[in-house]
């Protein structure tokens, strides 16, 4: 189950950012390393919210800066 969520999220982010899955190491910074702009960030959040039917509070968004944090965040929310 846990692995499934990880794979799902990695695939979702890879599709939106047009970055191959293998380049998406958990610690790679979305903004510094992958040049994600605010629009892309919103797109990730929107896709994430739609997939898991949850609403990410505004204050939580800036805390998620890489894939590892996003996966961790999802695990906390879905557990």
């Amino acid at each position: 189950m846990i692995n499934n969520i990880e794979d799902e999220i990695r695939e979702m982010v890879s599709k939106i950012l047009e970055v191959p899955v293998e380049e998406l190491a958990p610690g790679v910074d979305f903004f510094k390393d992958l040049n994600v702009d605010s629009l892309k960030a919103i797109e990730i959040v929107a896709a994430f919210e739609k997939k898991y039917r949850i609403i990410v509070p505004e204050d939580d968004i800036p805390k998620i800066r890489n894939l590892g944090q996003l996966i961790e965040y999802t695990k906390n929310i879905t557990s």
């Binding site: 939106i16 629009l39 919103i42």
Partner: peptide, 12 residues
């Protein structure tokens, strides 16, 4: 999906 889950990428 409801107004809260619209596709933000379409908006621009």
């Amino acid at each position: 999906d409801g107004p809260r889950f619209t596709d933000a990428a379409l908006f621009p």
